[in-house]
């Protein structure tokens, strides 16, 4: 069982769904408030979707200076798993934990609908349970989803296999190279615009997003079996 910290900012609105999705996958998931300064020994941190700080100035621009981001940055720099979903992706870009930036959709409209994406990288903590090249249906819900990176950065992302998700059949927002998600060079920090927590059960119309959360647990089972330690001073886990 992985300890998963779901970070809550003022204006987050996918935090409860994300917590539920992580718990449904078997994780010990809990909320961490934006003023908290530690992640309570998390194995993974998830920055959920929403409109942190009202999206003032730029989406994610103010959240990146919140106290909890120092803890998230330290966790990421130590190789810990970090996932940013939608607004979380915008925050990770603003914080410099992921390359590039997210700008206003090319068509200006806020888009809230399912899209088709292709899984391009399965060697991250959140995508190990997918097949490379697999096509998925996942919902998007964003106004600022156009991924932008200069030509040099985009070429580097492609060469390093850092594009994690790519829109197929249509590019809804004008993203560079149809990019819907990327990871850092260390592959432990992942940002995606689609919302896997809104598509993790048949009752939600499909479960293509479930394996984002199951991948964390599967990685735990295979890589950290026998890893016993105290967690939060309360209990031991194997």
């Amino acid at each position: 069982m992985q300890r998963v910290a779901v970070v809550v900012f003022p204006g987050s609105n996918c935090d409860a769904d994300t917590l539920d999705a992580a718990r449904a996958a078997g994780s010990d998931a809990y909320f961490v408030w934006h003023r908290d300064t530690d992640l309570k020994q998390a194995d993974a941190a998830i920055l959920p979707g929403g409109f942190s700080y009202g999206d003032y100035l730029r989406s994610g621009a103010i959240a990146r200076f919140s106290p909890v981001l120092r803890a998230v940055t330290a966790h990421a720099r130590a190789g810990g798993a970090v996932l940013g979903i939608c607004n979380g992706f915008q925050i990770l870009c603003e914080a410099g934990l992921l390359p590039g930036a997210l700008m206003r959709n090319a068509g200006l409209k806020f888009l809230s609908r399912p899209v088709r994406v292709r899984m391009e990288a399965t060697d991250t903590p959140f995508t190990g349970q997918y097949e490379r090249g697999e096509e998925l249906t996942l919902p998007i819900a964003h106004g600022d989803g156009r991924y932008v990176a200069d030509a040099e950065t985009a070429a580097m992302l492609e060469a390093n296999g850092q594009v994690v998700l790519r829109y197929v059949t249509e590019n809804p927002n004008g993203s560079t190279h149809d990019i819907a998600g990327v990871c850092n060079v260390g592959r432990n920090v992942v940002g995606i615009m689609p919302h896997p927590e809104r598509r993790n059960a048949q009752v939600l119309g499909g479960q293509d997003g479930a394996r984002i959360f199951l991948s964390l647990e599967a990685r735990n089972a295979t890589q950290h079996a026998g890893d016993m330690r105290a967690v939060d001073g309360r209990h031991l886990r194997v």
Partner: peptide
């Protein structure tokens, strides 16, 4: 540091 995004 804050007011402009150096990427965009």
């Amino acid at each position: 540091r804050l007011l402009a995004n150096p990427v965009t």
